Simulated scan of single mutants.
Amino acid sequence: MLGDIERNRGNWAEAQRLYRQCLQIEEELGDRAGMASSWGVLGEIERNRGNWAEAQRLYRQCLQIEEELGDRAGMATSWGQLGEIERFRGNWAEAEKLYRQYLQVMEELGDLVGIATSIGCLGELEMLRGNLDAAERLIKDGLARLKQLGETYKTGDSYYDLARLERKRGNEEVAQEHYHTAYQIYQQLGAAKDLERIEKEWNE
Rank of each mutant, 00 (worst) to 15 (best):
L82W: 13
I85N: 04
R87K: 13
G90S: 10
N91G: 07
W92S: 05
W92T: 06
A93L: 07
A93Y: 10
E94D: 11
A95K: 03
E96K: 12
K97Y: 06
K97M: 07
L98H: 01
L98F: 02
Y99S: 00
Y99H: 09
R100C: 05
R100D: 03
Q101C: 02
Q104G: 10
E107Y: 00
L109R: 08
L109I: 11
G110A: 07
D111K: 02
D111Y: 07
D111G: 05
L112Y: 03
G114Q: 14
G114M: 11
I115L: 12
A116T: 07
T117R: 06
S118E: 01
I119H: 01
C121S: 12
L122R: 05
G123K: 01
G123L: 03
E124L: 12
L128V: 11
R129I: 15
D133S: 13
A134S: 12
L138T: 01
I139G: 01
D141V: 00
G142C: 05
G142A: 12
L143Q: 02
L143W: 04
L143D: 03
R145P: 01
R145S: 08
R145H: 05
R145V: 00
L146R: 08
L146P: 06
K147H: 11
L149A: 08
T152E: 12
T155P: 10
G156E: 01
D157G: 08
D157Y: 08
D157I: 14
D157W: 14
D157F: 14
S158I: 13
Y159D: 10
D161P: 05
D161Q: 15
L162F: 11
A163E: 11
A163V: 11
R164W: 13
E166P: 02
R167H: 08
R169K: 14
G170L: 03
E172P: 00
A175F: 10
A175Q: 05
Q176E: 15
Q176F: 09
E177T: 08
H178T: 00
H178M: 05
Y179I: 02
H180A: 09
H180V: 05
Y183W: 15
L189T: 11
G190D: 11
A191M: 10
A191H: 14
L195Q: 10
E196V: 08
E196W: 09
R197L: 15
